[in-house]
Computed example of a mutant assay.
Amino acid sequence: MAEIRLEHVSKRWGSFVGVNDFDLTIADREFLVLLGPSGCGKTTTMRMIAGLEDATEGNIVIGDRVVNDLDPKDRDVAMVFQSYGLYPNMNVYENIRFPLKVRKVDPASHDERVMRAAEMVELTEFLHRKPAELSGGQRQRVALARAIVREPTVFLMDEPLSNLDAKLRVSTRAQIKNLQHELKVTTIYVTHDQIEAMTLADRVVVMNKGVVQQVGTPTEIYDNPANTFVAGFIGSPAMNLMEGEVTQGTFRGRNVEIAGIEAPDGPVTLGFRAEDATLAEGGAGQITAPIYTLELLGDATMISVRAGGALVAVKAHKEFRAEIGDTVSIAIPPGICHVFDTQSGARLDISSGARVA
């Protein structure tokens, strides 16, 4: 049983608050991703779970034990870092085996456990090599195998893919997801990459400035962001956000007017996703403006225009061709729109205007 409970956990250094009142239960075998920009508190949260940082307030419970006063070695967690942390003088076999020697595991079981871990990450043919002879992706797989061989209660992964190139990130991401499924170990994964979060997580915790902004499945967070921070952080591209004012059901901003918005009169921030809007024929859309930029993505063409005081993106079909400066019209049905309070950033219920907690 490896349920983890963070009970109103905070971390402060003097007057600086790194993490504020983090309160969450992570289910046994769950893959939880802590997501947010640099400095948001996600790595600090992980380090408190690992025992590398002391919590200023609150309890950290792993299984049925409060672990606040336990040393890292006694918490039964295995960490995989952004820097691989391999011993350059040891070959791959010895690097993977090292945690077993340190923990004084029965030497008779070492070979079987090392080979099993190496096989899981497809390293069996590299066991005799030193880290300097490996690629970045192979070194990261050694670090994964070293964590696996421990057979820990919890995996903690701190931006393990950041040093890999784009192609390796995709393949290693798939490997991590498959490993977690096979091993059935509770995993907490830190990243600033929202694509990693959306593809790996059972649930995502979005953080900003030490505060949890939203917790939910990737689908919940993508479809119903709790506030403008989450809306502007999740998605590639992020949600289009435009400031304006609603009057009698019509949103008006700079170069944009959308009827049928069921929100209370007053200033709001309106959002919609690029893939939910379409190009309209003959200037029939709610935004008509010259093209600011074009990006060919392979499966689609991304078009950006300036409207509502912001850059607004829409996805067109991959065969669409135009030039920068050509005028396009974007159709934005009111049903695809999200409405947020301009001052607080909190999401409004589009049907009633009530804030969503």
Rank of each mutant, 00 (worst) to 15 (best):
A307N: 01
T124M: 12
N178R: 15
P225M: 04
E122S: 12
E245T: 15
T219L: 10
N227G: 00
V19T: 08
Q286C: 01
G14F: 10
E323T: 13
A354V: 09
E151A: 14
I291A: 07
A201N: 01
R273C: 01
V80W: 07
P237F: 05
E275C: 02
L144C: 05
E295C: 03
E245Q: 13
L294Q: 02
M302N: 08
S109N: 13
G216H: 00
D74S: 13
P152M: 12
T45F: 06
I62N: 08
A147S: 13
T228E: 05
S109Y: 07
V246C: 08
L200I: 07
M115I: 11
T172H: 05
A274D: 01
S329F: 04
R252D: 06
V339R: 02
G137T: 06
T269D: 02
S162H: 02
K73C: 11
D74I: 08
I148H: 09
L100C: 03
G285K: 00
L296F: 13
E319Q: 14
L297I: 02
V114H: 02
L144S: 03
I261K: 04
T191I: 05
M302D: 08
L164W: 03
D111Q: 14
V211E: 13
R5L: 12
A117T: 10
R173T: 03
R97C: 14
P152V: 07
V80I: 14
D71A: 15
P267N: 04
V268I: 13
